[in-house]
Design a protein around this nucleic acid. Structure first.
Length: 583
RNA sequence: GCGCUCGUAGCUCAGUUGGAUAGAGUGUUGGCCUCCGAAGCCAAAGGUCGUGGGUUCGACUCCCGCCGAGCGCGCCA
């Protein structure tokens, strides 16, 4: 419909140009938008306002000239000029109703499109360090990423969902050593647990597994463990303290045994994370190991490529990437003075690898605290000869958690956090998924845990599910009464009251809203759409009876209700939210 | 200090990329079940869109200054 109006206007403008009533070559962009107020028709265009100045005509006069040239169309009943010069289009009743049949024919695939043309696109999200279970702070990225991936798939992209596992680096060694220290405690050694170690209970669990499977094989006397170790905070330095403990763990266990402890901790936590995400309805196609980058020499390859392109220099013993040349605020070290490559070097290799895998577009979903990192990663891609615009970073702001009216801070290190699993058990899967995506990702969000728990029956998600349940209930009652709703020959023109017209119009907007949500990377647009749809439905439901004696009217109304249910389910499905038939 | 993301109703947030009278939910106040599910509907009240300028037919939207919030500025990951 929008396209039809668009074409009509384009044709009219062309004629005006040819008749020299407006100058040619204005380079306009015709906008046709659905109207909010039924008094302003079904669709409106502001074209006359936009062209008023360049064509030197008063907007209303120009609008009249355009309207005079508009070709007649069966689907358009009436055209009006209103306000400062808007052109309002009233769609003929009967034409819009056909959308109802289309929805029922296409069923689950209504809303899908081929816009993406099978282009390969990667969405990398969550990617939390495997140093502990996921907490509620990770939930937003998980829900956002999963929904965005669904949306992109829905409009025709081939999507790969990836989790980057940070299984290298100091944080993981702190975890491995923390596990070993807990294990020593289980063996009966007296350990003063480091203030900078991972203190969560899950570390005990891993230590217990280590003990069960290996007995006292890794036991070493506490004196040796603490030999020559710098004093812990507050009197000493907690960073030096833990680094020395890690070094001693290496020395006392030897590389092979240390590796066993380390890998057990790593693998256990990756499993925990994978299971938690799966239970949250979030599944990945790939789990990419950071360690594999160095194992396969990709980091060296990346650095060499940067060197060959002349973007690397040496200074005070370290190797630097000249990222300032590509807009970064300062140059960055890729290889330290001690010969070790940096985390950033791994990231360069990782992103090089992403594009070498053939993705046309790569989307990274990062927590807002990583924003300072964007410039350097993009710089590295440019330096390697890729188009940095093919990498898109979507930042997700943190959700501030409130409990008992107080903000709670979360720290994986201290073991103080609410896990994603706990949240799901508290408020339910549907409410949790819905809550996370109902707000724009860049918006700072306050998450009131008490409210989520106690008022879960007030959660907006139930508003949508309730609409669907009502529709299912009506269908059940028809079946009980032995009323058959025929599938063919239904006279949809009986759907002529204001509620029905508004509802039908709204149904027709679903595909374009899904498209907009995917292209703008804003899943919350789908939430808003569904809320509006449910609102239209509930209003209609309250104002009119569906199961009436007039068979034609009954058939028409129940058919419309079925279409609404279908769209609700399609939308909820994109967000990983269920649509129960009863609740 | 510099940078990123923000600031809209008492509270939590939308606002279709510059359009018509700034909208929902929640909370407050009224009304609606002898009728398909009241987890619903209808109505009222609630606003200097942080603030001061600028751009134009038109600004919550774009530009600049200021105020305020969160986050980031390592040879950590």
């Amino acid at each position: 419909m929008k396209q039809i109006i668009n074409d009509l206007i384009a044709q009219a403008l062309l004629e005006l140009e040819q008749a020299s009533q407006i100058p040619s070559g204005l380079g306009y962009n015709i906008q046709v938008t659905p109207s909010k107020d039924p008094a302003q028709g079904d669709y409106a265009s502001n074209i006359a306002l936009m062209l008023a100045k360049p064509s030197g005509m008063p907007p209303r006069d120009l609008a009249q000239s355009i309207v005079d040239r508009l070709a007649a169309a069966d689907s358009i009943e009436r055209i009006e000029i209103a306000g400062p010069g808007f052109i309002n289009f009233f769609v003929a009743s009967g034409t819009s109703q056909s959308i109802v049949n289309r929805i029922l024919e296409q069923a689950d695939s209504f809303g899908r499109s081929t816009l993406g043309q099978g282009g390969r696109i990667q969405v990398e999200f969550v990617s939390a360090n495997p140093t502990g279970p996921l907490h509620v702070g990770h939930g937003r990225g998980a829900a956002y990423g999963a929904t965005l991936a669904n949306l992109l798939q829905c409009i025709g992209y081939e999507v790969q969902r990836e989790y980057y596992v940070n299984d290298a680096g100091r944080q993981m060694h702190i975890l491995g050593t923390s596990t070993w220290l807990r294990y020593l405690e289980l063996c009966g050694e007296t350990i003063e647990f480091p203030s900078n170690g991972y203190q969560g209970d899950y570390v005990w669990d891993i230590a217990a597994t280590l003990h069960r499977e290996n007995g006292e094989r890794f036991r070493r006397p506490a004196e040796q463990v603490y030999a020559d170790v710098f004093e812990d905070a507050p009197a000493g330095d907690k960073e030096k303290h833990i680094d020395h403990l890690i070094a001693n763990a290496h020395g006392l266990l030897g590389e092979d045994d240390y590796g066993i402890v380390f890998d057990l901790a790593l693998n256990t936590l990756v499993d925990v994370i994978r299971n938690d995400l799966h239970a949250f309805g979030v599944d990945f196609d790939g789990w990419f190991s950071e360690r594999s980058l160095s194992d396969e020499g990709l980091i060296e390859t990346a650095i060499t490529r940067l060197q060959d392109n002349g973007h690397v220099y040496e200074q005070s013993g370290a190797l630097w990437f000249r990222s300032t040349e590509f807009g970064d605020e300062k140059d960055r070290v890729v290889r330290r003075e001690n010969g070790q490559t940096t985390y950033f070097a791994s990231d360069i290799a990782y992103h090089m690898n992403k594009f070498d895998r053939g993705f046309g577009k790569v989307i990274n979903i990062w927590g807002a605290d990583h924003h300072g990192y964007i410039a350097r990663v993009k710089a590295s891609l440019s330096a390697l000869g890729y188009n940095a615009d093919d990498l898109e970073i979507q930042l997700v702001q943190f959700a501030n958690l409130f409990e008992n009216g107080e903000k709670i801070s979360m720290s994986t290190r201290s073991g103080e956090f609410v896990t994603l699993r706990q949240l799901r058990e508290d408020v339910g899967q549907d409410a949790a998924r819905f809550f996370y995506v109902m707000r724009k990702a860049e918006q700072h969000m306050d998450f009131d845990l008490d409210l989520a728990r106690e008022q879960s029956s007030d959660n907006p998600v139930y508003y949508l599910q309730y609409a669907n349940a009502r529709i299912c209930s009506v269908n059940r009652q028809c079946a009980e009464k032995g009323l058959e709703i025929s599938n063919t020959g239904i006279d949809l023109s009986r759907l002529d009251n204001a509620h029905e017209q508004a509802l039908i119009k709204h149904l027709s907007l679903f595909p374009e809203r899904v498209e907009a949500a995917a292209l703008r990377r804003e899943p919350h647009l789908v939430v808003n759409y569904l809320r509006e749809l449910a609102n239209h439905f509930h209003s209609w439901y309250n104002a009119h009876q569906f199961i009436v004696d007039d068979v034609e009217l009954r058939d028409a109304r129940i058919t419309l209700a079925s279409a609404v249910g279908q769209v609700l389910r399609n939308g909820l499905n994109l967000m990983g939210v269920s649509a129960p038939e009863k609740m």
